[in-house]
């Protein structure tokens, strides 16, 4: 109880994110309307009992599309963050361990990538690779890995100098023991925070790319392309943009609050 009061971000964040994950996992199973079923006669109809969020310009059920969009959004952002985490950690860790010129070279490369505004880099890459989900994941990963590389490298460099690590090394601890017992616990917190914020960021970036037609291809429902498709009907059917817009906003808010909450938790422990 007390912990909740102390850390409202965590509570609200967990609630929103858990609801989202449940909606994505169970929603399509419970609400069994086909998100791709076209019914031109019902195009642009407003919310009703049969279609709680109304229908889009092709008469497809908006609730079903938002739920399936949640699946896409969550799975893409999870995959991208996991990939970025692995790629970033390996590169950052390797750079720190190698040290010297290699470290310098790798970190300057990181700086170069960071110098581009992330979303522009992703747009450029997505445009070069062409639209499609795999290309989208590659583009978003290319934008996201640098943060993890910096965190891991920084932690490894400080840890190497810590007395307990020096002690463990002197006592003959194997590199794998050093990694699992000392390094991982130390980087886990900052990485978790970074990854949670990362998921929120990627949800937004995925929506932006899909909005621009560089992400999920029709008929796959994605929040970004739903928003784009609804734009032309803003005046006559605002529910087309409201539903995916709220979904994007809420989920990013949820992950940011969660990240915030974790940061507070981790920070209070250290």
């Amino acid at each position: 109880m007390i912990a909740r009061v102390r850390n409202p971000s965590l509570t609200i964040g967990v609630t929103i994110v858990a609801t989202m994950i449940l909606a994505a996992l169970l929603g399509p199973l419970l609400f069994r309307t086909d998100p791709l079923a076209i019914d031109l006669a019902g195009s642009l109809t407003g919310p009703s009992l049969a279609h709680p969020f109304g229908c889009d310009s092709l008469g497809r059920d908006m609730l079903a599309r938002v739920l399936w969009g949640a699946r896409l959004s969550l799975s893409i952002s999870t995959v991208v963050v996991a990939l970025s985490l692995v790629v970033g950690s390996v590169i950052g860790g390797a750079a720190a361990l190698a040290g010297g010129r290699i470290d310098n070279l790798v970190m300057r490369a990181v700086d170069i990538v960071l110098a581009f505004p992330g979303i522009l880099l992703a747009i450029a890459l997505a445009a070069i690779l062409g639209p499609g989900l795999i290309d989208l994941v590659i583009a978003l990963t290319a934008m996201g890995w640098t943060g993890y590389a910096r965190i891991v490298r920084g932690e490894v460099l400080t840890l190497r100098e810590r007395e307990y690590v020096v002690a463990a090394t002197t006592l003959g601890a194997s590199p794998s023991r050093l990694l699992t017992r000392h390094l991982l616990p130390a980087v886990a917190g900052p990485l978790a925070v970074q990854a949670t914020f990362g998921i929120g960021g990627i949800i937004g970036a995925e929506a932006a790319l899909s909005f621009l037609g560089l992400g999920a291809m029709p008929p796959t429902p994605s929040w970004g392309n739903m928003l784009d498709a609804g734009r032309a009907f803003l005046l006559v059917a605002p529910h087309l943009t409201t539903a995916p817009g709220l979904a994007i906003g809420l989920s990013i808010l949820g992950f940011n609050l969660l990240g915030d909450g974790i940061a507070q938790r981790v920070g209070s422990r250290a």
Partner: peptide
Amino acid sequence: PEGARLAEVFQAMLQRVGIALNVRTVE
């Protein structure tokens, strides 16, 4: 992008007879 809505209609209608239409949107 402006033609995507119509393309999705063709896609759905052709799917009913078993043809898969891969819609590619470019500016």
